[in-house]
Design a protein around this nucleic acid. Structure first.
Lengths: 153, 153
DNA sequence: GCTTGACCTCAACAATGGTTGAGGTTTTAT
DNA sequence: ATAAAACCTCAACCATTGTTGAGGTCAAGC
């Protein structure tokens, strides 16, 4: 075995797939979408540096947070192409996405609370039910918010 | 005007669209998917009873909770076709979906907490980083969980 | 040198949730 | 009676995130 574990060696698409846990077709896809970059061997085969492993890891985490590939790509654009993502880069990316994630959680939590309030009510009135008025569309009616207080309960 | 406001009158597709706040094409689409039902006029135009307004309202709320149309359709299947959704029906549906919603919130919250723990760390180690191990895949490695305790910090 | 595994491209397909447009019909209002 | 508005069907298209397959090439072991 003259071949030591060489951390500077280029990775083939198959190695990237195996080590990042995604399918080869997904690596192709990410490259086509501009999410990762590499070069070609003499025989036109894909070659990557090890930093694509980290990028793919970041992509998958961002996806869990509900970030679309286009947005991930845009966020990556801030990192000089080809450079390895540093802890600092990761901090910036994850902070930005944390805000998105937080907003998503807040929206779902609000929906849950509204659902709790409306289970068993079932009015679903277009103008009065909070479930039908995600933002606050009451003001759009021009008549101002009308809160109906049930007399009992 | 011999036409009073008649709550028993059938609704045309355009009225349904206007009153439910979705596009006409969406009403067509929901009908094609079996989410709503109606009948046809002599001239082959769609006619609906008013209960489709409530159904569409329920569909939109469920979608906000991240429920797919196929699942919504399945849930509706429990309600005798053509019957108006009662408050009781709505209670059953919303309770079921609340659980889904809650699971979704829990998953995102966990991700957020992990993200907080990993911002600035950036290791993203496939075997050690919680962000890379959504469930608990450590056990799948066969070697048992290996927790690396940094000696300092 | 040959076989085999890994790789290449390009197009098509899949699921989800709809929208758009063409070409023709019905309903409604005057 | 007629014009306009609303409606019909069907196919194609949009975005998203990939997967699958056909037909051909590259690289490495024996």
């Amino acid at each position: 075995m003259t071949q030591r574990i060489d951390t500077t060696r280029a990775l083939s698409v198959g190695e990237v797939a195996r080590r990042s846990g995604v399918a080869i077709s997904t690596v192709h896809f990410y490259e086509a979408k501009g999410l990762i970059e590499g070069w070609r061997s003499g025989g036109n085969q894909r070659r990557y540096t090890r930093d694509v492993l980290r990028r793919i890891a970041v992509i998958r985490v961002a996806q869990r947070a509900g970030i679309g590939l286009a947005d991930i790509r845009a966020a990556f654009a801030a990192v000089p192409a080809g450079r390895t993502l540093t802890a600092l880069d990761w901090g910036a990316l994850s902070s930005a996405w944390r805000a998105e994630l937080d907003a998503r959680i807040r929206a779902l939590t609000q929906l849950r609370d509204e659902l709790d309030g409306c289970i068993g009510c079932g009015c679903l009135s277009l103008s009065d039910c909070p479930l039908r008025n995600p933002g606050d569309r009451l003001s759009e009616t021009g008549a101002g918010a009308v809160l109906l207080e049930p007399s009992g309960q």
